[in-house]
Design a protein around this nucleic acid. Structure first.
Length: 423
RNA sequence: AGAGGGGUGUCCGAGUGGUUUAAGGAGCACGCUUGGAAAGCGUGUGUAGGUCUCAAGCUUACCGAGGGUUCGAAUCCCUUCCCCUCUACCA
């Protein structure tokens, strides 16, 4: 979330940024927020003044008791007892004012970086780079949902039986391809200096708050009935939350972590056209990279992460493009996001396979993730990106590499799969 | 899951209602000392908020978390989380 001191010092900038992200009535909300903070401070001061008085009196009573002046102590006691209810009342008022302010503050998205294009929908995203060329496919090229049936490698019907829609079962070479991709992606990340983490895939409420899923987006996550734990929508949540309530030594920065996890998304209400086959699932595997930086280095890190993801796509020989998301299409917590999309040969459309973002201090403020500069604590910058999500990569490989002898595996993957073709 | 014991600062650790303004030790930083180091001596060493032009200062909260009792809570009570031991179960 944004910080009040920042909003106070950069009120105009804040309003402009929120407007770019299509927050309605940004100016009104910001002014209300500042008024609420003034309110909070005033109430806090009242409460603290009374507390100071009461603390002093309690200390006096203690001293009187010790020196045996019981009568005096008793008198003082009844005097200060009267303060109690007023103090409690003011403390509660201050607490309520703070909560009201925070409740509003957490609803505000992060401010977009100055390079973020204006715009409302995916149409307004800016294409910054395109690599490779359209695959040449036979006229009878099939979409992946037909190919997986033809080769019997991914089974939606079985998934329906044991769980429900959107939970496919990977079989035989389909399962082995999954495992190959996971290992390939992890190895690529490790080679690029990332440290591997295997986090829990259920998280508590504090973690959901730390990275911005909660409050507000609980509808997108599965939750366990008894414990109230959430199934992670992405490894970003547990891996970033490792640093919740942490003051990291500047010498330990940058932190570069990678982890593979299954990801769970309810995708409530988002089913319809364009979501056939592997395009959108309730459960899928993803390798996630997370970085933590000194503020001045975070944008260089974002470029590095983008290059890392692109390097993998190039090794896989997938035609892709890079988008700089516009204000209306970017995520709640992000300041700048690049999406990578691969070309899906038989669907004739681009599929998003990665999203890399710089959150600047937005998550760090929620997490209380700080470092020290000249003895003062400052918020770190957090970044993350998919490197990569599996299902759409699988869809693209299947569709783009189909031929008369089956589906040819990209060369880099063969050492991992142990086979050259799915046939 | 049941019974019992715990959770104090960067770490160890004392503290069962009132100079706790959290003892003591270790570590760390700086200074003195030294040819240099060690030892020794001295000083300092948390987070967040408020006040303040800045700094200093003052002030509030924080002893796992939340609530309560009290003039006053690390200390007493309740709830909850986590750790340890034993039992049970299990891969």
């Amino acid at each position: 979330m944004l910080t009040i001191p920042f909003i106070r010092a950069n009120t105009e900038l804040t309003i402009q940024g929120l407007t770019k992200k299509h927050v309605a009535n940004a100016a009104e909300i910001v002014n209300q927020l500042l008024a609420m903070d003034d309110d909070r401070k005033a109430l806090l001061q009242q409460a603290e003044a009374l507390l100071e008085k009461s603390n002093a009196a309690a200390k006096e009573i203690g001293a009187l008791m010790q020196s045996g002046q019981k009568e005096l102590a008793e008198g003082k006691r009844s005097e200060t007892a009267a303060l109690k209810s007023t103090i409690k009342e003011r403390e509660e008022a201050a607490k309520l004012a703070e909560k009201a302010m925070l409740d509003l503050l957490v609803t505000l998205p992060n401010l977009p970086h100055s390079s973020v294009p204006q715009g409302k929908t995916a149409e307004d995203n800016e294409i910054t780079f395109t690599w490779g060329s359209l695959p040449t496919l036979a006229a009878d090229a099939q979409p992946h949902w037909d190919l997986i049936k033809k080769y019997d490698i991914i089974d939606f019907d079985l998934g329906n039986k044991i769980t429900g829609a959107g939970f496919p079962v990977y079989k035989g070479k389909g399962a082995r391809l999954q495992r190959a991709l996971i290992n390939f992606f992890l190895d690529e990340a490790i080679q690029a200096g990332y440290y591997e983490i295997q986090p829990p895939i259920l998280i508590n409420e504090d973690s959901g708050f730390g990275t911005g899923q909660l409050p507000d987006k609980e509808g997108q996550m599965y939750v366990t009935k008894e414990e109230g734990l959430y199934l992670i929508p992405t490894a970003e949540v547990p891996i970033t939350n490792l640093y919740r309530d942490v003051i990291v030594n500047e010498k330990e920065l940058p932190i570069k972590n990678v982890g593979h996890t299954p990801c769970f998304r309810r995708e409530a209400g988002s089913w319809g056209a364009h979501v056939r086959g592997l395009n959108r699932l309730h459960q899928f595997d993803k390798i996630e990279i997370v970085q933590i930086h000194m503020p001045e280095n975070s944008y260089a890190a974002l470029e590095e992460m983008s290059k890392h993801v692109q390097g993998i796509l190039q090794k896989l020989g997938l035609h892709y493009r890079v988008l700089r998301l516009c204000g209306g299409d970017m995520g709640f917590a992000s300041a700048l996001t690049y999406d990578m999309e691969v070309w899906s040969g038989a669907q004739n459309r681009w599929l998003e396979v990665s999203s890399v973002s710089n959150f600047e201090t937005f998550q760090a403020n929620r997490l209380k993730l700080r470092t020290k500069v000249d003895g003062k604590s400052i918020l770190c910058h957090t970044l993350n990106g998919s490197a990569l999500a599996l299902p759409r990569i699988v869809a693209a490989i299947l569709e783009n590499n189909q031929g008369p002898d089956g589906i040819k595996m990209p060369d880099v993957l063969v050492p991992y799969t142990g086979f050259t073709h799915i046939n």
